[in-house]
Nucleic acid binder design. Structure first.
Lengths: 298, 298
DNA sequence: GCAATTCTGTAATAAATGGAACAGGCGGCG
DNA sequence: CGCCGCCTGTTCCATTTATTACAGAATTGC
């Protein structure tokens, strides 16, 4: 699977018959779109008959025409998903710098596809203080659920992070109702336990917001709102950066829905924090001329 | 015909019903490949039924599903033919989009400032299995510490996430030694408790890696390695996206240092997971030949 | 130049697909 | 609380589609 089907075709072009070669060249000239339509269209564009297309597919090693199409589609999908589709340029070593660039591109792609209306709808949901918010994540994405919960808890009441083992999750279910919202983070490889809880919640009439990858977690089928993000990076792991930006966008949105409430609550809770290292103001010496970090919440 | 179908979909999304929206979002998340297969595949991927896909197509103004496919294909064809035909970069209102753009820019800036040598040094540190790794974060950044710990714990042994109240932290200190590493996430407003622990660890000879914002947490003065990130966004809150990408870069780096070990450990621990929703493979009906989300760890 | 063989298109078939009618279910309104 | 309307999924049918069998055409070898 490492080499493109196009290369494969070029190599095996010799072993083709005359008309099959016409089919092959037509496909290469219009790669891969021509192979995604019907056999008849392909045949017409190549100026040959339908069976020739089938025979061509067979010669390329595909038992069926549908198999060839699947191959083309997955190839195209990979190419479009991972912005690796850069030209053969990039003189710099593809080591560490690439990663950040691609993570950025992922975020850009993610938001280019996300309709604002969908984000706004979710923000409205999360800003409604009459609804209890439950947040839940998977093996890795649980960190995002925590992150988001930590912020939301400051902005409004009734925020619950569903933590612990699956066995305990059921306990949260008894409190969920029709007016409540469950925010689930689930990217591949999807966890069946998350799906189980989501389905149970859905049956209780809970509104479900799903933040997932572009292949869509199976939870999508019970979710009210689905926010898909790009996660592919040149690493065995997926990147949750785009998910985090989605979370932060939502947080920012909720903060902005009711600025008064946000301001009040933020400053109220400020008192209870022990942040803001006191040593910073008194103890330390010069600390150079670097300006102190301005408080963005001012 | 000048504007992409994707935009069209985003616009007319509001006039869609709930399940139709799911179909639309699935298509956008997997644009345009998902629309090039059969209706059944589309439906399965979106978690809805086939007729919903048809109705969705109809609502978008296509008399037939084939018409939608043709539209997608010609669009894709044009795009592939002229490399300049980049996405129209939707000039959407600067409300929500700004946030993502600026977060991206932050990541770019962050890595432009970060010397590769520093990253590599930290990667080498984290890859050394003789050292015990302690991870620690603040009010919000603790999520990142968890996220990173979850990954590192798979890649190597001796990974400890310092959790709980400050009082308990001291318990971790007794085990720390000269060979160990403490990774601290601390952005403004800096928490004095993190600083206290860090100073104590530093006195024990622990190597300290600090991931902070560009104003540098006071912990910087006791840290061996400092990785500063851009965090400012148009919101009362800071963005941890750049921190997350740093964390992921480190994780990817550690994974790559000893690929054999990584592969072995990942596949070993794989067995104990209950991820990978079985329904995805068997349960669902037709599912036809639709590829399951490829496992990036394969 | 002839014959055998391979190749290619036409025609028929069987499968799978898109599409339409139908009925249950959900939420909204009175 | 009950009725009504819309939405959604299931079932079925008609159509298109991929695929096979066959016969004609071309080509190569002798």
């Amino acid at each position: 699977m490492t080499k493109s089907l196009a290369e494969d075709i070029r190599e095996r072009l010799e072993s083709c018959t005359a008309t099959e070669r016409r089919a092959a060249l037509a496909l290469l000239a219009n790669y891969p779109v021509l192979g995604l339509g019907t056999v008849a269209q392909f045949a017409a564009a190549a100026g040959v008959s339908s069976p020739t297309i089938l025979r061509f597919a067979a010669r390329m090693g595909f038992p069926t025409y549908a198999a060839l199409q699947t191959r083309l589609r997955t190839e195209l999908e990979d190419q479009l998903k991972s912005p690796l589709a850069k030209g053969p340029e990039s003189p710099a070593e593809p080591g560490v710098l690439d990663f950040a660039d691609i993570a950025c591109a992922n975020i850009g792609d993610t938001f280019r596809q996300l309709p604002n209306t969908e984000l706004e709808a979710v923000v409205a949901l999360l800003g409604d203080e009459r609804r209890t918010l439950y947040l839940l994540g998977g093996r890795f994405t649980d960190a995002l659920a925590r992150y988001m919960a930590a912020h939301l808890r400051i902005l409004r009441g009734r925020v619950v992070h569903v933590a612990g083992q699956e066995g305990n999750w059921r306990d949260y279910l008894v409190d969920m109702g029709r007016k409540d919202v469950l925010i689930v983070f689930d990217i591949r490889r999807y966890q069946s336990d998350l799906a189980r809880l989501s389905v149970a919640a859905a049956n209780l009439g809970v509104t479900i917001v799903l933040v997932t990858d572009s292949w869509l977690s199976p939870i999508a089928s019970v979710a009210t709102h689905v926010l898909p993000a790009r996660v592919s990076v040149p690493s065995p792991w997926d990147s949750s950066a785009a998910l985090m930006v989605i979370a932060e966008t939502l947080i920012a949105g909720v903060t902005a829905t009711d600025p008064e409430r946000s301001k009040r609550r933020i400053s109220m809770l400020e008192v209870y924090r022990d942040d803001d290292d006191p040593k910073r103001r008194s103890g330390r010496q010069g600390e150079t001329t670097e300006e102190a970090p301005p408080d963005p919440q001012a």
